[in-house]
Design a protein around this nucleic acid. Structure first.
Lengths: 248, 248
DNA sequence: CGTGGACTTGACTGCTATCAAATGATGTGG
DNA sequence: CCACATCATTTGATAGCAGTCAAGTCCACG
């Protein structure tokens, strides 16, 4: 009824996965009303944390990670605007990993009661939230395939493809480029390789003119060529097929 | 009210994660009433399959996998009795990976309506099912850490630890041993390594007397020693702390 | 007893980690 | 504005882990 714009990245993302009415979107946008800013490289949530508020990223970037006994860090998810940090934590009881900001980040802290209310009274929105959880899981599976059975350079190319599509979903791709505020060390922790090897693999991708990555931005001159190189198939992101990247 | 035994592996598993009443367990056991047998090494579900029945493993073992364009296979989940194959497939709309049996397997095919009915009318059981989905996701995260930041031998040891705990949960550990019907080639596809390297790593674990693995059974003489070696922490499985492995 | 599959072993290659140092970028105080 | 400290990126050299190829052994089965 009111002016409908997909202001919130959450509504934009969910709309790519499930059918939503204007009223549904309004409900979703309402969730994003009150936000706060967290500085770069702070722990948002620690391992072992009990269910409390539910965190949602609105601006900036964060990551899920664990640190092994030997002090090595593993990053297994990059959280961009519209991504939840701990949507279903109440069911599990405690966090089994930590979440840290990679940049200055704007986040929403939702009382758990708000989520409960949605699950109870807004079935289509509830379904959309479960959809996002299941897509997160599908993404983990793809990362596992990536790490286990693709060459390092394809793995890295695949990651840049995925982020391109996800960023496109929330309208953050401009002229074939999107922000990626990762140091090469963090990138290495995503891919499970050493920093030196990450650097050299990146150089190789640049040499092949498949992409550019400097000053925290990824520039992709020809998405289809990069996707072919990486054998990237966006199927696992379960988009309804409305992304503008199709023609890119 | 009636004779309460945890007959179904599903009830046994769920009871380890969430509190269930006798009535809840009865509901769960009812799900397992009608089953069918599938031969070894058959595709249970193919990539791209639309939502139809929901599949649940009762006996035997199956795996989730994908095959890359180059023909390499990646196995990213081992399904044991009590595990669902595609519980929430209706929300995603289609399978983004395939599932195959590793042995002759007894499975239940549930109409989607049955699941819907539970989600609607049995909130505690519904919560238990969501719990199992979220634990599957947590397991994927741990596998990603495993693959990215642990040495091959620790990674393999970690896998055997996880399976020990999961098998214990459904009462399939006997005298420190459990069934694992994987060829070394399949084991390699789980770990993301070559068959030859899987063989040599296995030999090293045997040499260290951390475990035995022959005739489809894993024998673990001292679980705590293996867990220490692998830096295995069962936290991510989100068990309520009732497994008999604590003292092992 | 022959056959096929899984497992094992050896030889070799090459990818990737590690260590160390140089270069470049950024920000601060003098 | 420059000197300096700090951090990220880049480069080179070396070692070793892990993939590949190929052959041999073991075992279950007909």
């Amino acid at each position: 009824m009111t002016d409908i714009r997909l202001d919130s990245p959450l509504a934009a993302k969910l709309a790519c996965g499930v059918a939503l009415s204007a009223e549904d979107r309004r409900q979703i946008d309402l969730l994003c009303a009150h936000s706060a800013v967290v500085e770069s490289h702070r722990n948002l949530i620690s391992q072992g944390d009990p269910p409390h508020h539910v965190h949602l990223v609105l601006e900036g970037m964060a990551c899920r990670f664990k640190t092994t006994g030997e002090g090595a860090r593993s990053i297994f998810a990059l959280l961009i605007p519209g991504d939840f940090c701990d949507l279903n934590i109440a069911i599990l009881g405690r966090m089994d990993h930590a979440i840290a900001t990679l940049t200055r980040t704007r986040i929403v802290r939702l009382p758990r009661a708000t989520i409960d209310e949605i699950m109870l009274n807004h079935p289509r929105v509830a379904r959309a939230l479960w959809w996002s959880t299941l897509v997160d899981e599908a993404t983990l599976r793809e990362w596992l395939v990536n790490m286990g059975r693709r060459s390092t350079i394809m793995q890295m190319a695949h990651l840049f493809c995925e982020l391109f599509v996800r960023m496109d979903t929330i309208g953050m791709v401009r002229d074939g480029a999107y922000p990626l505020p990762l140091s090469q060390e963090e990138l290495a922790d995503v891919l499970g390789i050493s920093t030196v090897h990450a650097n050299r693999t990146l150089q190789e991708l640049r040499r092949l003119q498949l992409l550019g990555f400097s000053r925290q931005r990824v520039q992709i001159p020809d998405f289809q060529r990069l996707a072919d190189f990486a054998t990237f198939d966006p199927d696992y992101l379960h988009l309804a097929g409305s992304g503008s990247h199709r023609k890119a």
